[in-house]
Design a protein around this nucleic acid. Sequence first.
RNA 1: GGGGGCGUAGCUCAGCCGGUAGAGCAGCGGCCUUUUAAGCCGUAGGUCGCAGGUUCGAUCCCUGCCGCCCUCACCA
Length: 497
Amino acid sequence: MTDGIANDRLEKLQAMRAAGQDPFPARVPRGQPIGELLPDFAQRHGQVVTIAGRLGVVRDFGKLRFAHLSDRTGSLQVGFQRDRLAAFWPNRKQIEGNDLVSITGELGTTQKGEPTLWATDVVLASKALRPAPEKWHGLQDQEQRYRMRYVDLFANPEVRQAFALRSKIVRAVRHYFDSLDYLEVETPILQPIFGGAAARPFVTHHNALDMQLYLRLAPELYLKRLIVGGMERVYEIGRVFRNEGISTRHNPEFTMLESYEAWADYRDIMARVEGLFGHLVEVVLGGQSVVTFREKQYDLKPPFQKARYLDLFAQQNPGVDWFDHASCLARARELGLKTDGIEPHKLANDVFEATVEDTLQGPIFVHDYPVAISPLAKRMSGDPRVTERFELFVCGMELGNAFSELNDPIDQEQRFQDQVAHKDDETPGEVDVDYVQALEFGMPPAGGLGIGIDRLCMLLSGSTSIRDVVLFPLLRRLDPNANAGADAAAPQAPPQP
RNA sequence: GGGGGCGUAGCUCAGCCGGUAGAGCAGCGGCCUUUUAAGCCGUAGGUCGCAGGUUCGAUCCCUGCCGCCCUCACCA
């Protein structure tokens, strides 16, 4: 606020206040969306209309000025002529680029045919004390774009479009499940025991109950309680939180879709996923099923490829037995993976991820995962070492995870106890006895699904980074003292009385 | 956490071999009634991310730190 440009604008604002004008009026003529005027503009010649929005760069010709006015629906040139704006003209410079204005005038064109609103009434709606970024390049600096998304959004129209697409995707997902008679529900984000995924949680505390709480890793265990309760078909689209690293495909908070359907197994859910993608291709992509992602093309039109987890593992690791620790350990060392203190099943899966995931161009369903890495999935009847579970991969990126839900409370309790016995910071320190109790009341066979909505948006929009589909990605806080040197750093603690 | 890159005016970017900074846009003053990246004349604007070091002299070389981007690790 101390730079000269802001002060120029501040002076204009103060001059307006001195003249009795409100630079931030509560209400101005709102008019109509610009986008409504454009399609049949030629027929509207001579019409008097009002539009409101943000002013672009002013092109000044002395007794004539032009500027574009933009709202969420479009952009239209406004012409300010001295002869039509006798009262406004002397103070015309008080309204400048980036100000928010409401303008009434007559529709027409310029000599070169540019659709133009010839202003007869100009009302300042809100004074901008800071200028817009450069008109031609917009805001380019990545960091500034994320830290000041509000500027990024108005300066770079394609950013607004990207988030409009995200909205459309989420709406399409909702529509798909709604049409299948699923109920959209909301379950606790603050959870006393974390579960539903293997990850480190964020920890918080409730004062009145003096209780440690975790921000949820997943809604899974609550949604399945609803299946016990007879809701039979439920889904939730909501934020989950994982205290992990940040990368182009990870944000500490992200949006997850989870759905559960009674009387379905993982084969039915596979069909649901294919149905969902078919719906997204139609509704979001307009039938154009091929998307470009990380410089490669993917056809999202179902049906998708399928491959068994253990088959893929065997292909990439000939002679290695997933279930034999010594065998996996040797392979992991060969691959240069971390092996110290890693549980055998985790290590085996690390070998899978290191050797197989990058080969999964997809879309492909990887199915029948080992039970040891699938603590909530039901075992295959023919082979108790594996579960009825699949994941969906595109471009080596895991998009979704689904399985026939484990509804045997005795098996479930045993697996929870195994987790507790081998507790690390990604597993809870206690059995979720209430969840086991819920299963004891009887849960119908059910199929469940989780899809990372952010990654889905990345794929459908061709975004390389998750930050381009998250409006406000988590960034390190800028510490005003950080750059001031050690001497200027804030004291570690206030002096004790 | 490891590796690589970047940080210069409000914004977009130059800046050579080390000689303490430039352009365009935005701003300010002026000319112009049909421009649309308007044009022309003038003017102002800088802790070169921060702190040290080397040097007669550092935006430039070195070290540390801060932040962002990419990548690997971890994860979805």
